[in-house]
Structures are given as structure tokens and as C-alpha cells.
């Protein structure tokens, strides 16, 4: 997983070719911390098929709002700089994340 912030988001996510998954989290979001090890595991399992990034929203608040992330956790998928799918607004199960990854993995 690549730690992304407001300075390199453009470069790592929007300018990247292919599918990029971004895990938006915050240090006080229990559900994010709960989900994180599962996401890291998936990042290992599907390494090379999708690019995996994460953003700590504390300190990158404007970036989050700019990407319409106003609730955590949120998992967004981008392709060639465009947002193509997202999981947010509800409880996110690791299985849901894997299903999306499978859908977009090459």
C-alpha cells in the first residue's frame, strides 16, 4: 500500500494508468482501523493487478472533501484519473472490498 497525501495524490492516483484503489481512513475511525488489516492483506494478494493506496484524512481533509469523501471508511476506485466506483456510507465488509477488487483486477 502506498501512503498518499495531498502533495502526491495527483501523481500517484489521478495521473496513474490503470485501476487505483484508495482506502480513506482516519486514526479515530474504529471501523477504518478494523478494516485496514484486511485491506492490507488484499493488497498483498492482488499485488500487481491493481495499485493500492491509502490516505489518512487527518491532515488531508481538503483532499478528502475534494474527492467527495465525507464519511469514513471509504474505498474509492479510480481508472485513468476518473472515479469509477466506491464503497462508502455503510459498514464495509472485507468481502465487499475483495469483490470490487476482483471486478477491476486485470
Amino acid at each position: 500500500m502506498i501512503e498518499v497525501n495531498k502533495d502526491n495524490f495527483d501523481n500517484e492516483v489521478l495521473q496513474a494508468s490503470g485501476v487505483v484503489m484508495v482506502d480513506w481512513w482516519g486514526p479515530k475511525c474504529e471501523r477504518c482501523l478494523e478494516l485496514m488489516p484486511h485491506v492490507e492483506e488484499l493488497a498483498g494478494k492482488y499485488q500487481g493487478q491493481i495499485k493500492f493506496c491509502s490516505v489518512d484524512t487527518s491532515g488531508n481533509r481538503r483532499l478528502a472533501i475534494g474527492q467527495k469523501v465525507l464519511g469514513l471508511p471509504a474505498i474509492l476506485f479510480y481508472k485513468d484519473g476518473q472515479k469509477i466506483d466506491e464503497l462508502s456510507g455503510q459498514e464495509i465488509a472485507p468481502e465487499d472490498v475483495e469483490a470490487k477488487i476482483k471486478q477491476y483486477a486485470k
Binding site: C29, R31, K68, L70, L72, A74, Q90
Partner: peptide
């Protein structure tokens, strides 16, 4: 709009 401004958890989302 859940997760887009609608929230049920202040601790999770407040700092945004």
C-alpha cells in the same frame, strides 16, 4: 448521502 455528509458517528467523521 450517507458517507457524503450524513453520519451517525461523530468520532469517525468529525475532523472532516
Amino acid at each position: 448521502l450517507r458517507g457524503k455528509g450524513v453520519s451517525y458517528c461523530a468520532t469517525c467523521d468529525a475532523d472532516l
